[in-house]
Amino acid sequence: MSLLSHYSYGAMVFLLMAGLYIVIGRGNLVKKLVGLGILQTSVYLLYLAPGKIVGGTAPIVSEDFSLYSNPLPHVLILTAIVVGVATLALGLALVVRIREAYGTIEEDDILGCDRQSEAEEPSP
């Protein structure tokens, strides 16, 4: 139980933080979605890595093997991957619509556009 034997958790935390940083730190809407994808990938790793048992085989009942890896995390993460794909697709679709409406996909420019149009609105 050394720190090294837990390296998958280290990788998971790194991916999580990297993803979160990109979502917060970048102004480009597509890059933010990339960050979101990295963040979700870290979750996959959290589930998948502990499911593997060193020396374990796929869970097929056979007399030759007694040590099996846990297949459940794979099933769960398959679901999570589908959710991730759907989120990314929806996010990109929104970015396309935002580009059509504002002509830009930079967050600062979009906020600037909104402020400008709010200022131009006739105030009775």
Partner: peptide
């Protein structure tokens, strides 16, 4: 058109939350 940006921001926050 601000609905699109609102939805995008909700998507980011909601996905981080989930």
């Amino acid at each position: 058109r601000r609905a699109l940006v609102a939805s995008y921001q909700y998507l980011l926050m909601g996905t981080i939350g989930a």
